[in-house]
Computed example of a mutant assay.
Amino acid sequence: MVPSFSEHSLVLRGPYLEKMTDDEFFDFCQQHPELRIERTANHEILIMSPTGSHSGKRNARLNGQLYNWFMTCPQLGEVFDSSTGFTLPDSSVKSPDASWVAAEKWNSLTLEQQSRYAPLCPDFIVELASDSDDVKELQKKMLDWQHNGARLAWLIAPKTETVYIYRAGQPEPEVVQGFDQELSGEDVLPGFRLRLAELR
């Protein structure tokens, strides 16, 4: 394995990792539960630093709002927090800061698939930028989510109070400026409203 460093992560790459199976990658992650690990479509392994306190606070508030909505209609699907990995159609494994999967899609999986990195793309995901994140890099990640099948995806940048909304079938995101408003879950999460002011 050949390591390299980006601003916020350690990147591992090499012939062995290119051949690593999904099961082997899952086992590798289980051996290092203290780390946040993702895998690219090229089977590079990304080991990321822990979340800072401000980001952790915001993420808790984000997930709290999503969970409260979920409790009003649990039959529609399942919600997941930032520690959840998904194996996407392009073979990458990613962990959004918050996500939701429609019940039909989730229930089509076996119990074994549900207990590992579920082989699906969530219908809805949120990526919450930290103050030091490169938003342009996160925008590339949002396109990965969109291309893998996310129906609605939000990139939230509290530092500039900007939200980028990605929708299935739309080539460009909608840009929303200012946190004195709410975001709608639209037809993907009917009735969900995210109060952005809580993420300041």
Rank of each mutant, 00 (worst) to 15 (best):
L12E: 04
D23M: 07
L120Q: 02
A157V: 15
P190D: 11
T84F: 09
E18F: 05
L17G: 12
G149C: 04
L35S: 08
H54S: 14
F86R: 08
Q146P: 01
K141W: 07
Q30T: 08
N42M: 12
G77A: 08
G185L: 08
T51S: 15
S108K: 14
Y16K: 11
S99M: 02
V2S: 13
T40Q: 04
L88S: 02
I125Y: 00
V101D: 00
F80Q: 06
I37S: 02
G185M: 09
N42S: 15
D90Q: 08
K19F: 05
K19L: 13
S132G: 02
E104A: 15
D81F: 11
N59D: 14
L194C: 07
S108W: 11
I125A: 10
V2N: 15
S99V: 04
V93F: 01
R151Q: 15
E44N: 12
V188E: 01
L10K: 04
D133C: 04
N63F: 11
C29M: 13
I156F: 00
S130I: 07
I47H: 05
V175H: 05
E34L: 05
D187P: 02
S92R: 02
F179N: 05
E7G: 04
P158E: 08
L138R: 03
S49G: 12
R193A: 14
P74F: 09
L46F: 12
I156R: 00
F70C: 06
I37D: 09
C73H: 14
F28E: 03
D27K: 08
S91H: 14
S130G: 08
D23W: 08
K57E: 15
I156K: 00
I47K: 03
